[in-house]
């Protein structure tokens, strides 16, 4: 079952939860063949019940110790711009659509998402453009995200510190 996983991290992002469960967004997801929506809503005040979208499977929870399994099962992840979430999703090699929270502008957390967008590792939109983005987005433009190389760091340090 083609699944979309939505995550807001440790904070709340009610606006995203509201828009992604709106009929327009759900229609756009259905048109793309998605059949199931899993929402991690954090501290938000919205926890949509399972029957809130007709003819569409919906599950919602606040927090889990690890969302790795939800990411693994997803075919598309829609996330807030938090660096930890972005890196976890890209590390799992899942297509990622980041939704910027306009209320958090100039937050340094946005730096990484913006750069990853420039490098074509993720798609990027705001709440007001989300529905349109879900209709028109092209996931094939996304470039794979290669993991960082701690080995380069270790080699450099060995040399610098004279480790034999």
């Amino acid at each position: 079952m083609k699944t979309v996983f939505v995550t807001v991290g440790t904070t709340s992002f009610d606006e995203l939860i509201e828009i992604v469960t709106s009929s327009g967004a759900v229609q756009a997801l259905k048109a793309r063949g998605y059949e199931r929506l899993v929402l991690q809503v954090g501290r938000g005040s919205l926890l949509p019940p399972a029957d809130s979208c007709p003819n569409f499977r919906l599950e919602a929870f606040r927090f889990k110790d690890s969302i790795a399994e939800d990411i693994r099962q997803a075919d598309l992840v829609i996330s807030h711009a938090g660096a930890g979430s972005c890196l976890e999703v890209l590390g799992a090699e899942k297509p990622l659509l980041v939704v910027i929270n306009n209320k958090l502008m100039n937050n340094h957390q946005l730096e990484l998402a913006a750069q990853l967008h420039i490098d074509s590792h993720l798609l990027y939109c705001t709440c007001s453009t989300l529905t349109e983005k879900l209709r028109t987005m092209d996931l094939s433009v996304l470039q794979p995200f290669s993991p960082g190389q701690p080995k380069n760091f270790a080699n450099f340090l060995d040399k610098a510190l004279g480790v034999q």
């Binding site: 660096a83 340094h108 730096e111």
Partner: peptide
């Protein structure tokens, strides 16, 4: 004591 600092990957434009 050598001080080795690695800026977080989250920092793209500005240092913490």
């Amino acid at each position: 004591v050598l001080i080795v600092y690695v800026e977080s990957i989250c920092r793209v434009q500005m240092l913490s």
